[in-house]
Simulated scan of single mutants.
Amino acid sequence: MPDIHTTNGLWDHLEPASNLLAAVFDNDPILRYMLCNLSYKDYLVYLRPYWRGLCRAALLNGGVITEVNGWQTAGIMLPPGRSVDNPWTIIPAAFGFLGVLWRIGFAGFVRMLWDFTCPVNAAKERVLQGQEHYYLFAIGTEYEHQGKGLARALMESYQYTAWSLEKPIWLEATTEYSRDLYLSLEFEVVEEITIGEGKADMDGRQNPDGLGVTLWAMVWWPKASQRLNRE
């Protein structure tokens, strides 16, 4: 395991976390789909305020931002019982990206709240059946520091926290690379979900004949005894 130094923060960590995640999720297919009506140039411009709004939503729902080694890696974890689609925080969080919402319009808002949220929540209910869990909202590493084990080390610290309270961790992997990383950390894929069929290609760009974008709902269980009958 690499030597890591971490700090946890809330609103003081908002800007650097937004900047880092915007930089490293520049080609994420799910985010590209969410903003698919923008040109790629505009997409890159609006990624930072978009992530600022997403991070605001996480913080408003009890999320904690953890940075590693001076912002080489950052992650956001929500505690048990909290969710970013809480209706009481959607409007306050939206102030973080009003300009983005204006550019993507109502169709973009639908992609954010329904195309993604509805199938993910259905999978979560089927698998966890209301069981309290941690939610890994986001994790990312600067390109020049990837491959050093920083994200893995941060994930292992999250797993230790969840293990100590006997709570599972839920996340959605949006690329095959991230899916395989989580698999190596003993997460399991509980559902493969495709969104945007007939709207976008696999990279998330607009395409009326596209096959859509795939994501993987995944869970880490702290103990075998916490596995529920999910049939």
Rank of each mutant, 00 (worst) to 15 (best):
G198Y: 10
N86G: 12
P208W: 02
K41W: 11
N69E: 15
E176Q: 08
A107P: 02
R227L: 12
G81M: 05
L21Y: 08
A138I: 05
D203W: 00
W114N: 09
G75H: 01
D3N: 11
I195S: 01
I195Y: 01
T89L: 13
I169W: 09
F109R: 00
I139D: 01
R82I: 05
M34K: 00
Y143A: 15
Y177V: 15
E125W: 07
F187R: 00
V219A: 03
H145Q: 04
E192W: 03
G212N: 07
Y46N: 11
G196Y: 05
R230F: 14
L211T: 08
S157H: 05
A58N: 08
R152Y: 01
P16R: 00
L171Q: 10
C118M: 11
E191W: 04
A107C: 09
A224N: 04
L47A: 08
E192L: 05
R56G: 06
P168K: 01
I65Y: 08
Y43F: 14
W220E: 07
I91T: 10
L165Q: 10
D201H: 05
Y143F: 15
T161E: 15
G204C: 04
M218H: 03
Q129A: 14
V84M: 15
F97P: 00
E186Q: 14
L211I: 03
N121T: 07
R111N: 11
D42S: 14
R32L: 10
L228T: 06
P49N: 09
P208Q: 01
E166R: 05
K167N: 11
Y143L: 06
H145M: 07
V213K: 09
A173S: 13
T214I: 08
N121F: 09
T175Y: 15
I30S: 09
H13Y: 13
L38V: 10
T175N: 11
T174R: 06
L98M: 12
Q146V: 08
A173E: 15
G70V: 06
E156S: 13
V190R: 07
M155R: 04
I193L: 06
R152V: 13
N37E: 15
F106I: 09
D180C: 07
M34P: 03
E192P: 02
P222V: 00
D180I: 02
L183G: 07
Y143R: 06
A57W: 02
V190C: 12
I139W: 03
P87T: 00
G62F: 12
Y158N: 12
P2T: 01
A173P: 07
G63W: 03
L47S: 12
T66G: 04
G210N: 01
A138W: 01
E142S: 14
I65M: 06
V120P: 02
G70K: 02
W163M: 14
S178L: 11
L21V: 10
C55Y: 03
I90V: 15
G96R: 00
V45M: 02
G198L: 09
E67T: 10
I104A: 11
Q159V: 12
Y160C: 15
E15T: 13
D180Q: 13
D28R: 00
L101S: 10
Q226C: 09
Y143W: 12
S184M: 11
Q129I: 04
S178F: 13
V213R: 06
L44N: 14
R179C: 14
E231Q: 04
L21Q: 15
T73I: 02
L14K: 00
